[in-house]
């Protein structure tokens, strides 16, 4: 068949299976996060959260999904229909694509690009379009303002995100995520690259516009921001896209700063899940604890504080790497 041998076909089938398995695992994890976040927020606000549907309320996810599937999928008559429909697909697409280069264990992972990290940055920079186009196509003042804020916020924080990662890249000598993990066998990057870790955490939070950087969807000012006009499964895609973003940033922190699957005794996958799960919970804790900054505060914090720290970090790391070589 097509001049391929049996071994090659088996290889292709295995890769396809692995890809689909990772895709499903990631999307299911993101869907479960809806429940995890609500339970954790409950814990930190001295209440229980959803605990009625199924054991510990875990079937709340299924209930929410069923509800959202059966909601009316309404497109406002004044909206730009094509763009309105495309917008939520973009955020799902870019975030899921970014998972392609994340190495989960020594063997599990879709692809090892030699520009893995750049690929993730590229995908996250394309993710801006989802929000900005949703805001524009809704033809709604709140949505447009939300889209505007997102554009400025995400473009700015992408800069610091990229710069903070340069230190990691310098230490590993490669953009390949797998090489970056393997370079941390002696010492996790969190120790030599602590400033970069802090910047990446903050910028990552802003990049997926999670609280405290959820200005694009600040309820008090913008009703629901860019997704004000969205309903049904289109809103659901934004919703799940946000959780996918949390999972992605948590995986990236794990891979880049906490040695990915590296760890004693337990198998690699368990270590990866534990580390990533910890950061998912941390993002929820951030949402529970912190207040939303004003828009100008967000911008000046980024450009006046994070940018200089990131640049100094890159310079020092570069100097040390050259001196050690």
């Amino acid at each position: 068949m097509f001049g391929l041998s049996f071994d090659q076909l088996l290889d292709i089938a295995l890769t396809a299976f692995e890809t689909i398995a990772i895709l499903l695992a990631v999307v299911i994890a993101a869907a479960l996060l809806i429940w995890v976040e609500r339970r954790l927020l409950g814990v930190w606000q001295d209440r229980y959260g959803p605990n009625r549907v199924g054991p510990f309320g875990i079937l709340q996810v299924a209930a929410d999904m069923i509800k959202i599937f059966f909601k009316e999928d309404w497109i406002p008559p004044f909206a730009d229909k094509t763009v309105f429909v495309i917008a939520p697909a973009i955020i799902m697409f870019t975030t899921i694509m970014a998972f392609a280069v994340v190495p989960f264990t020594e063997t599990i992972g879709v692809v090892d690009l030699n520009i893995g990290l750049l690929f993730i940055l590229a995908m996250s920079s394309l993710g801006v379009y989802s929000v900005i186009l949703a805001g524009w196509s809704s033809d709604n003042k709140y949505a447009l303002l939300g889209g505007m804020r997102t554009a400025a916020q995400m473009i700015s924080y992408e800069v610091f995100m990229g710069l903070s990662l340069l230190g990691v890249v310098l230490l590993a000598g490669s953009f390949d995520m797998r090489v970056i993990v393997e370079s941390q066998a002696g010492m996790w990057n969190i120790i030599p690259q602590f400033p970069a870790f802090v910047i990446f955490l903050i910028a990552g939070c802003a990049e997926i516009h999670r609280a405290p950087f959820d200005l694009p969807e600040a309820e008090q000012e913008l009703t629901a921001g860019y997704h004000t006009e969205y309903s049904g499964m289109k809103f659901g895609m934004f919703f799940v896209g946000e959780y996918l973003g949390i999972v992605l940033i948590s995986c990236l922190i794990t891979v880049l700063f906490f040695g990915g699957w590296l760890g004693p005794i337990l198998p690699g996958f368990v270590w990866f899940a534990l580390k990533a799960g910890f950061f998912v919970c941390f993002f929820v804790l951030l949402r529970a604890a912190t207040v939303r900054p004003r828009y100008d505060q967000l911008m000046s914090f980024g450009w006046k504080i994070l940018l200089p720290i990131a640049l100094v970090n890159v310079a020092i790391t570069g100097a040390v790497v050259v001196a050690m070589a």
Partner: peptide, 27 residues
Amino acid sequence: AWNATSSVLRTIGMTFMHTFRKRDTIL
């Protein structure tokens, strides 16, 4: 800078300590 950082960290810490508080919800 020190004040800002420490207050944010303290907030996060205090919120986390709520894990061990009694629940206010009546089931």
